[in-house]
Design a protein around this nucleic acid. Structure first.
Lengths: 134, 134
DNA sequence: TTGGACCTTCCCATCATTGGAAGGTCAAGC
DNA sequence: GCTTGACCTTCCAATGATGGGAAGGTCCAA
């Protein structure tokens, strides 16, 4: 129990590669790791949990700034679920905005592509549209 | 007609700011502009058309690499509409993939948020999920 | 003791864009 | 003619998240 490990092992278990672990430390997402006498970083199981937390938050598309806040809330017993939910819903809103934007682009481009023969001839409504929209 | 203008005017008309015009020149999206004796860049109406083309392509989410190719096809009379359509549809596919990814994240996060009280209490299924997915 | 697999820090690249600094040019008003 | 301010020039750096690699130190097993 309570075993400690070096960065390679922590990477394997947490699913966050070593390069990224160092990076997360450097930008303050996770606290500075303890070191052996020779300078190797040491990780506890708790540290690995934090890393996996970060990985999963990334998987939901949260920014590093948001993740930093989420980690601190996670670690803070006097947090309120309201704070967490606010961040989550703001992120949902941002993603939904992005989805709409992409859908709009897809719609336009599909329409143009539908009218493009896609053969050996040079005529192309896609280029026409980009070249002169009027 | 056939008036020529400096970068500021070209920026206004094309809708691409001056900083970005210089950048596009530096990365080869547009050819190097002619210069006055004193070194100011000179743009023709045709150049401005190219800049607006780039701006609209950006608006459809194309990458600079793709836009470089599209500009060259636009300028090339012996292009085939097939080439253009291929690029466009590949881009549509990429955007649809991205949309699915975002939708999946939104779905997960909305589900977690729905079960989160969002009040003064610390209990929070969002943090629980990020902390231990098992 | 040697080798290889690990670790360290540091710098650079990506992508598209923006910002600023330091300095040159132009045109209008005095 | 000179000043002023708006424009232009180049160069360097930052963004956000990550990856790649170099140069060098450490650990462990044969």
């Amino acid at each position: 129990m309570n075993r400690s490990m070096n960065i390679g092992e922590a990477a394997k278990i947490s699913g966050v590669n070593a390069k990224l672990i160092r990076h997360y430390e450097s930008i303050g997402i996770i606290p500075k790791a303890l070191r052996t006498d020779s300078g190797y970083r040491i990780y506890s199981e708790s540290d690995v949990n934090t890393l996996a937390f970060v990985r999963r938050a990334r998987g939901l598309g949260f920014s590093m700034k948001e993740i930093k806040k989420l980690v601190s809330l996670w670690r803070n017993r006097s947090r309120t679920s309201h704070e967490v939910k606010t961040i989550a819903l703001a992120h949902v809103g941002e993603m939904e905005r992005k989805i709409s934007e992409l859908q709009e682009m897809v719609k336009t481009l599909k329409h143009l592509a539908k009218n493009c023969h896609g053969d050996q001839r040079p005529e192309c409504p896609i280029l026409d549209n980009l070249g002169k929209p009027e």
